[in-house]
Design a protein around this nucleic acid. Sequence first.
DNA 1: CGCTTTTGACCTGCGC
DNA 2: GCGCAGGTCAAAAGCG
Length: 285
Amino acid sequence: MESTCVDTSLNLNVNASSILKDEVLVEELHRLSSENKRLNETLTNMCENYDTMQKQLNQLMNQNFENQTQQSRKRKAESESCINMFGTVRGINIINNNNECSTVTDEESLIKRPCRDISSPKAYKVLVKTEASSNSLYVMDGYQWRKYGQKVTRDNPSPRAYFRCSYAPSCPVKKKVQKSVEDPTILVATYEGEHNHGHEKAEISMISSQSEEAPLGSVHVTSPQQIIQRTCSTMKLDNVPKSSIQQFLVQQMATSLTNDPNFTAALATAISGRILDHTSNKDKW
DNA sequence: CGCTTTTGACCTGCGC
DNA sequence: GCGCAGGTCAAAAGCG
């Protein structure tokens, strides 16, 4: 009879404990959901702001471009083929849907040389920020490239590397990579043509391995600006649905946060603190 | 051994 | 037609 009483009390204790745990988990779930919702809203605002700024910048770039072309007939003649330019600020990106010939913020070289080298309407440029000490001309963008040439060009002391897509022999895509004249830490990758095959790796991996010196997982993104910057450096924003960008940004932020030992430590402390609080509260009961 | 990278030579287009 | 500059080829070297 006594053993029955002991058994009953034990069972009750276990049930109370599991109910408390469930409550803690449910509460944590609600808290995380609301936090996730708040982050999503913040992200949406950031994307909207980015869109607005991008449009304003494009307008300014176009205005500047038109002003410069009016100053010189020769310059105008050379630059007539460089219409529909999508510019952007240094360190972020430059994406073009149509023919263009500029490197980022390098308006002089834009004017000086006609853009005969980019004949494909599918050509676009992508900027990739690298380490200052990096001499690598390799831009990891998820595709496999085979280098077939390197050339030193007149308007840029750093060599230009030529790549072909090696994933599919019939793939017509070519890529040119050269350091920016103004900022040698920025690689300007010019893509021509479209891949006639699927993507080999997830987009998410693109940013995590942008240079040889930064292997997978060693990326240290320290601010939202850098996350945005790295993201923008590798995505064709003009052609990607906004929802995809948001999803990609969320993934990037999550990856960056989970890779940050300070964040994970703080998260563990916070969660264990909450659990301890509940435990101590339970003891009081 | 097979694939990739390097690099000098060659080809092509454009301006004069 | 010539020269220049960008783009491509292909043999040699490197690497796993």
